[in-house]
Design a protein around this nucleic acid. Sequence first.
RNA 1: GGGCCGGUAGCUCAGUCUGGUCAGAGCAUCGGACUUUUAAUCCGAGUGUCCUGGGUUCGAAUCCCAGCCGGCUCACCA
Length: 496
Amino acid sequence: MSEPENQLMNVRLEKLQRLRDAGIDPYPHRYDRTHTSKQAIDLLDQAEAEHEGEDEARTESVSVGGRIVRYRGMGRATFADIQDGEGKVQMLFRRNNLGESYATLKDLDIGDWMGATGPVFRTRTGEATVEVQDWTLLSKAVRGLPEKWHGLTDVEARFRQRYLDLIASEDSLRIAIMRSRAISALRRFMDGRGFMEVETPMLVQVPAGGTARPFATHHNALDRDLYLRIATELHLKQLIVGGIEKVYEIGRVFRNEGVDVTHNPEFTTMESYEAFADYTDVMEMVEQMVFTMAQDVLGSATVEFEGTMIDLTPPWPRLDLHEEIERRSGIDFLEANDIESLKSEMAAIGLDVGHQMSWGGLLDKLLSDTVEPHLVQPSFLVDYPVEMSPLAKKKRDDSRLVERFEGFIAGMEVCNSFTELNDPIDQRQRMEQQEQLRSRFEDEDTDRLDEEFLTAIEHGMPPTGGLGIGIDRLMMVFAGRRSIREVVLFPQLRSR
RNA sequence: GGGCCGGUAGCUCAGUCUGGUCAGAGCAUCGGACUUUUAAUCCGAGUGUCCUGGGUUCGAAUCCCAGCCGGCUCACCA
């Protein structure tokens, strides 16, 4: 620790000792709070409404508690603002009211937690204020808070020491609360539709159900390599096989890939599977889900994202993937149906196709570069080529395509859904193709063959509509933030 | 991994181009004044591995080289 930092802490440690010497417990076990800051202020509003016209309305005595975030000593009177989970409220300490204990205030600092008791009144500048008759130290802080005006701007510190960010930035706290409420709303929505929430393993033997590089670990007692799951998909479908007809999981998945503004190595998804449904049913569910969540959490179906108003009201347009790609790039992927022709057509419009890639990999890049950025208002891209979608069921009338859609908002993919492939013979072939692709394109991720999953669906899986929705990205939309780190409390920082 | 930008007091930053009163400001801290302030105000004080290590120079926060850390961005990655 640097010398001045040490000095600042020593000053506080000395105050701590003085308080102890004066018989004050700086870390009491509990406090009887009667009102939050907001409740105290509301109480005054109410008192004023009841005694309209009278001067100096005063409430009954309340006890509030919180952290000192501002401190204005004025001789024989002192103002302090305390902040609790619902906001801030001002305290007025007067020597006339406090006697001996007024002098002890000098050993308090910004950052300390305190409780205060007294009536609420309004100062002449109009601020609801607790006129303190009695106060209690609740916790002495021995380190100081960030600068009061600019707050904490160092990005790394904001995320590594999120608690400081939450103290200093109302916006950060607001986003954290919003996320929690959104997930509650999501749960209510799913439960309301008769879905059952489950938990499936995070440690898996085969990291399947998506295309991603997994985190590897090792179980000592079993002497076995295990992976952190990259998706919840295959276990949830096994529950569909088991007869749980509507099932979902909200949970963390892990991908050992790049860290950037829209990617965190661990992120939260909600996957759901519904027997007897197909992807058109899921589309309807997704737009209702997002709309309902927005209404619940934001009180509105409209959010502002970087200056653009985004309207989440259903229905969202269904855009045919094949048509959209052709419209944006001029490329017809059903014609350019081999690697060389697709690659040359992409190169012709200036896309970088230098890396060795499969046909599906190329098409994915084409989609990301030419179509996705245009999908600012919520929309669904519908019907993907079979090569990109090893877990989706082929279209009824075109075996080159599968019944799959992805939902986009603000140019970001937020969900992915299929009519699930339940033909075990077809599924085995598709997984085998994925394994072949991986050996052929070493740089490229593919899905993996999971024998336990294949065994499960060989026992009979009903027609099923499945969904995976990226909660973090949806929260970015709700929060109007372009960085995933703004909506994850403790994001992974750039890898070393 | 590439490119660009950055790292100076606990926090927010100026100073670097043009080397030498450049170790600075505000907040915070400490002492003092003040009984309705709210970025309180006023008077006074202390505070540094100028990211690290080399180099150039009489002299480096400043210039050069290497490294570390961070941000943005491109690539990669659904």
